[in-house]
Simulated assay, not measured.
Amino acid sequence: MTLSAGARLGPYEIVANLGSGGMGEVYEARDTRLHRGVAIKVLPSPVAADRESRERFEREARAVAALNHPHICTLYDIGRADGVDFLVMELLEGETLASRLARGPLPAEDALPLAIQIASALERAHRAGIVHRDLKPANIMLTEQGSKVLDFGLAKLVGADVEATRTMAGSVVGTAAYMSPEQAEARPIDPRSDAFSFGAVLYEMLTGHRAFGGDTIAQVLTSVLRDEPPLLAGQPALDAIVRRCLAKQPSQRFASMRDVKASLERAAGAPASARSRDNLTSSTCSMAASESRAIAFASPFSWSIHPKAITSGRSGTTASWPIFSTCRTRSRARSFAACRWRSATERRDS
Results as ranks from 00 to 15, higher is better:
residue 92 L to I: 14
residue 276 S to D: 15
residue 198 F to S: 07
residue 12 Y to F: 14
residue 96 T to P: 09
residue 53 S to Q: 11
residue 277 R to G: 08
residue 110 D to I: 02
residue 256 S to D: 09
residue 193 S to Y: 00
residue 122 L to Q: 05
residue 111 A to E: 11
residue 94 G to R: 13
residue 103 R to T: 10
residue 278 D to K: 13
residue 145 Q to T: 09
residue 3 L to V: 09
residue 88 V to T: 03
residue 133 R to A: 11
residue 342 R to N: 08
residue 56 R to C: 04
residue 190 D to E: 11
residue 35 H to K: 10
residue 324 F to W: 07
residue 109 E to V: 10
residue 65 A to L: 09
residue 45 S to F: 12
residue 6 G to Y: 12
residue 34 L to I: 00
residue 6 G to E: 14
residue 344 A to P: 01
residue 11 P to F: 00
residue 18 L to P: 05
residue 43 L to A: 11
residue 53 S to T: 07
residue 339 C to A: 14
residue 73 C to D: 02
residue 256 S to G: 03
residue 206 L to T: 04
residue 288 A to R: 15
residue 51 R to P: 02
residue 184 A to R: 05
residue 123 E to V: 01
residue 106 L to Q: 02
residue 131 V to D: 04
residue 10 G to M: 04
residue 243 R to Q: 08
residue 150 L to E: 07
residue 337 A to K: 10
residue 278 D to E: 15
residue 37 G to L: 15
residue 143 T to R: 05
residue 186 A to H: 11
residue 253 R to F: 06
residue 236 P to L: 00
residue 338 A to I: 04
residue 260 V to A: 09
residue 266 R to S: 10
residue 247 A to R: 06
residue 26 V to C: 15
residue 316 G to R: 13
residue 24 G to V: 13
residue 321 W to K: 11
residue 186 A to R: 14
residue 207 T to E: 07
residue 81 A to W: 06
residue 298 A to M: 07
residue 247 A to L: 03
residue 63 A to G: 01
residue 10 G to D: 04
residue 88 V to K: 01
residue 149 V to T: 12
residue 196 F to A: 09
residue 21 G to K: 01
residue 148 K to D: 04
residue 290 S to P: 05
residue 72 I to V: 13
residue 212 F to I: 10
residue 24 G to F: 07
residue 147 S to M: 09
residue 186 A to V: 11
residue 102 A to T: 02
residue 3 L to I: 09
residue 238 L to R: 03
residue 21 G to E: 01
residue 297 F to T: 15
residue 144 E to L: 14
residue 237 A to N: 04
residue 38 V to L: 02
residue 249 Q to I: 09
residue 225 L to K: 08
residue 217 I to D: 03
residue 150 L to F: 12
residue 266 R to W: 04
residue 320 S to E: 13
residue 275 R to E: 13
residue 265 E to F: 05
residue 170 G to W: 01
residue 202 L to F: 14
residue 13 E to T: 00
residue 314 R to C: 05
residue 48 A to I: 07
residue 318 T to W: 09
residue 213 G to R: 14
residue 96 T to F: 07
residue 138 A to Y: 00
residue 174 G to M: 12
residue 201 V to F: 06
